[in-house]
Simulated assay, not measured.
Amino acid sequence: MERDAMMVAGFGFRSGATLASLRDALAHATAALQPAMPAQAIALLATAHDKADAPCLRALADALGVPVFAVEAARMNATATLTDHATVRMLRGSGSTAEAAALAAALIHAGPGAALLHPRAVSTDRLATCALAARTQPPESRP
């Protein structure tokens, strides 16, 4: 996928989350886009550095055939989110792990002009969240 069109799915999840939890959160996130976007359009999964090796996330990455990007805590904390969940902020220093991970990774990999596409979506079992980010502005043309 070309750099300017890269779509990033950011995840936050509890220790009890399963592959099904993450798939469900991703399905809710993609359904929130109009028109609905297939999960195959995702080029990268992102999460907090300490969650990047979780078996459920690695299984989803393998199933989708995409890499996982681990976002350092300082970058997560410096990334603005649409959601400001008090408990997540207290535990992690960011209002939403999923949103901060998605946006931070999109800014790194897709470049300036990347943005969150909507607030995070929550899995039905409430164990995982997913947010999508991508370039929303065309790159500046240079003379």
Rank of each mutant, 00 (worst) to 15 (best):
A73L: 14
I42T: 01
G95T: 03
A52C: 04
I42S: 02
A105Q: 12
P67C: 07
L57K: 07
L91M: 15
G95F: 01
A80P: 11
A61Q: 12
A104R: 08
L64Q: 09
A59P: 14
L64T: 08
A106C: 06
D50W: 10
A98N: 08
M90G: 15
V71W: 05
H85M: 00
Q40E: 09
A102G: 05
A73V: 13
T81N: 02
L57E: 01
L103K: 12
S94F: 01
H85T: 04
V68M: 13
T87M: 14
A59C: 15
D50A: 05
A39L: 10
G65I: 05
L91H: 15
A59D: 14
T81Q: 06
A98G: 10
A102T: 07
L64W: 01
A70P: 11
L103P: 05
A70G: 12
L107R: 13
A86Y: 07
A80Y: 12
A48I: 07
T87D: 15
V66N: 04
P67R: 00
S96W: 00
A106H: 02
A41H: 08
D53T: 14
A43D: 10
P55C: 11
A43G: 07
S96G: 04
L91Q: 15
T83D: 05
A41T: 03
T97Q: 02
G65E: 04
A59R: 13
A63R: 15
R89H: 13
A59K: 13
A70K: 11
P55I: 10
T87H: 15
G65D: 08
R92P: 08
N77L: 09
A48R: 08
A105P: 12
D50P: 03
A48E: 00
V88R: 00
A39M: 11
L82Y: 01
D50E: 11
V88F: 09
V68P: 09
A54V: 05
A106N: 09
P67H: 10
D53K: 14
A61V: 09
A105H: 12
L107Q: 14
A98C: 02
A98M: 10
G65T: 01
P55A: 12
V66R: 03
I108Q: 09
D62K: 05
L57S: 00
L60W: 03
A104F: 04
D62F: 09
A39P: 09
L91N: 15
L60Q: 02
A73G: 13
D62E: 11
T87L: 14
D62C: 07
H109A: 08
D50G: 10
G95H: 11
T83F: 10
H109T: 05
E72R: 15
L64D: 02
D50S: 08
